[in-house]
């Protein structure tokens, strides 16, 4: 028997700035319905939004998958796209390969991945050049007080 859980899968389109943020927004709303602690929701929302934007800006297409169960919250951001050639460099604050056009829209400050790192309790990035990227983010519930 699988333990009770909620699963939500949302497709994300590359280069679609009109819909950008919708996946993170739905993840956030789902967590609010579940009564998750609001500080934790904020961390999940910010990390998911950054991961979603990375698909929109840097990849062709992908999806966000949310899974919630008694153990914690997992958000997966998976895409088909150009991948990240140098992950260590990509993780440094301020590093960005975003185009001038994207920067003009206010994105591409190079803070996405560092922020994701800061907001998550566990982060694993699996990426292959010209294939795609898979970002696994996990969050623990705050210790009961």
């Amino acid at each position: 028997m699988t333990e009770p859980h909620v699963r939500l899968e949302i497709p994300v389109e590359g280069n679609n700035f009109t819909a950008a943020g919708e996946a993170a927004s739905r993840v956030k709303k789902t967590l609010q319905k579940l009564g998750i602690d609001s500080t934790l929701i904020r961390r999940v929302a910010i990390a998911t939004y950054e991961a979603e934007m990375n698909i929109v800006i840097h990849a062709d297409a992908g999806k966000i998958v949310l899974q919630v169960d008694a153990d914690g919250i997992t958000v997966l951001a998976e895409d088909r796209g150009k991948g990240i050639p140098d992950l260590e460099k990509a993780m440094t604050a301020g590093f960005s390969t975003a185009s001038d056009r994207v920067r003009a829209m206010g994105f591409g400050a190079g803070m996405g991945l560092p922020n994701i790192k800061k907001c998550t309790d566990y982060l694993a990035i699996d990426t292959e050049v010209n294939i795609g990227t898979k970002v696994v983010m996990k969050f623990n519930y705050p210790a009961a007080t």
């Binding site: 009770p4 859980h5 909620v6 609010q32 319905k33 579940l34 009564g35 998750i36 609001s38 008694a70």
Partner: peptide
């Protein structure tokens, strides 16, 4: 918050599904 379905996570999960 008026958003949560239940204060108990397991029940909230069940209700959301």
């Amino acid at each position: 918050s008026v958003l949560r379905l239940d204060r108990d996570l397991a029940k909230a999960i069940e209700k959301l599904n």
